[in-house]
């Protein structure tokens, strides 16, 4: 997968990596068992400190989205974790709130928002 980071972004670099890997797994662009670049490979590729990559991978490991196998490398988890349903809802709520505020401000009717979601969903399927 390709990762693109932007140092002047609102999110610190390690969070940008976490988010992009998470999105790629959620969107099926990264499949279970697929190998991720090593810390050093990704650090050199993105021109960032190796520790930053380590921090991002540590976070992804904590969320059990990836796992490191000694001597072999880092892989997308075989069984992706079931996230606590309450937490899952809370995380989505913020994003949904922003989406609906934006729609209301732009005068986009609710049905169009739903259509848009449908369209994006189709695009995310691998």
């Amino acid at each position: 997968m390709q990762i693109y980071i932007h140092p002047g972004d609102e999110l610190p670099i390690y969070r940008q990596i976490v988010r992009q890997v998470t999105d790629a797994i959620a969107g099926g662009r990264l499949a279970s068992g697929e190998r991720l670049p090593s810390h050093r490979e990704l650090a050199l590729q993105l021109v960032i400190a190796p520790l930053t990559v380590k921090k991002a991978y540590d976070e992804l490991e904590r969320e059990r989205l990836i796992a490191t196998q000694r001597g072999r490398g880092t892989f997308v988890s075989e069984s992706l974790p079931a996230i606590d349903p309450v937490l899952k809802r809370e995380r989505l709520r913020d994003a949904a709130q922003r989406l609906l505020s934006q729609a209301a401000l732009s005068g986009v009717p609710y049905q169009e928002v739903l259509d848009l979601l449908e369209e994006i969903k189709k695009g995310m399927q691998p």
Partner: peptide, 10 residues
């Protein structure tokens, strides 16, 4: 260059 610092520094 703050972006360079963000890339490099811990």
């Amino acid at each position: 260059y703050m972006t360079d610092i963000e890339r490099m520094a811990d």
